[in-house]
């Protein structure tokens, strides 16, 4: 078997272990490329049955419009239940990335996720995180145990040997499971290519309205984007390597309109995948701190 077939078989094995050993799992779904791969693997793992768990979108209300479109399409066509959760406090306070900085991610994503997991009593949440994305992720187990407060204790992780996963936990505790742990960005692209998986067109270059902020090219995805006086969005041919909230996600200038061209550009770039993500930059270990607080 080649390395992609090995990774696929491993991810399927992980998903089946979760289904067999836990009572109420959910798969987080964001309409990004990793989510698309996760959903595809889930279909494969349980075929001819449908994946025996719901999908859940932790919505920040600030995602790209195209992501919402794909999400709604998945909701209609997958045959799986899709839960959309928005943190009601964040909604009420009008938390947004322009005025509230780090609080935006904290309230909508971290708190939203914790609230949703508690509300539906999910004991396992599948996430699409990969170890090659970030240094603290590289340290995380595939079955990542969380306390009843959703905390990740990096110093006391359970040993994880062979492919024997320990899914035992007490009431209130939960496990985040990462079937794509051993995949790299290139593996994801190549798998999408080989399996012909649908992804949002934001990953392909198109002329889009943009402005520059702090060295990042941001897309003006709707009229909530506060423009400076006299500022006109400039149309540039851009695409995205990674997708989050649109005001926090930097684009790359690109002419790559097909998947193979995108892969080609990705392989030729000299910048890392998360380069365009504002969230990782605050300090060297900002992801670790977020994860301890319950972020994915």
């Amino acid at each position: 078997m080649n390395h992609l077939q090995c990774l696929e078989a491993e991810a399927i094995h992980i998903m089946r272990e979760v289904i067999s050993e836990t009572s109420n799992p959910v798969m987080l779904y964001s309409s990004g490329k990793d989510s698309a791969v996760m959903l595809h693997l889930a279909k494969k793992a349980f075929y001819p049955s449908l994946p025996p768990f719901p999908l859940m979108h932790i919505d920040t209300t600030w995602k790209f419009q195209e992501m919402y479109k794909l999400r709604d399409k998945v909701d209609k066509n997958s045959g799986m239940k899709l839960i959309v959760y928005q943190n009601p406090e964040a909604k009420e306070e009008g938390i947004n990335p322009f005025d509230h900085g780090a609080l935006h991610t904290d309230m909508w994503k971290t708190e939203g996720l914790k609230q949703a997991l508690d509300k539906y009593s999910f004991d396992v949440a599948f996430g699409g995180a990969r170890r090659d994305e970030e240094k603290s992720r590289a340290k995380e187990r595939i079955f990542s145990f969380r306390s009843s407060q959703h905390r990740w204790e990096s110093k006391t992780q359970r040993p994880e040997l062979w492919s024997i996963y320990n899914a035992h936990k007490s009431k209130g505790e939960s496990i985040r499971v990462f079937p794509l742990s051993n995949w790299t960005e290139l593996d994801i692209w190549q798998y999408i290519h080989l399996e012909n998986i649908e992804i949002v067109s934001l990953y392909f270059a198109r002329p889009r309205p943009t402005v520059e902020r702090d060295g990042l090219i941001l897309m003006v995805d709707d009229n909530r984007f506060p423009l400076n006086e006299g500022e006109e969005p400039e149309v540039r041919s851009i695409r995205f390597r990674t997708l989050g909230c649109y005001p926090l996600t930097g684009a790359v200038l690109s002419e790559a309109t097909t998947l193979t061209e995108v892969i080609q550009e990705t392989l030729l770039t000299t910048k890392s995948e998360r380069y365009g993500r504002v969230i990782d930059k605050n300090q060297g270990t900002s992801m670790e701190v977020k994860k301890q607080q319950g972020y994915f």
Binding site: R131, D132, K135, A138, S154, K155, S181, L186, E288, V289
Partner: peptide
Amino acid sequence: LLVDGLNAEREQGITIDVAYRYFYTKKRK
């Protein structure tokens, strides 16, 4: 510092937990 990804590791300059890293050459991943 590329692999010691946890705060405690970077502070103490030691490796506490296993880290996984990925690379490929022309022949293997």
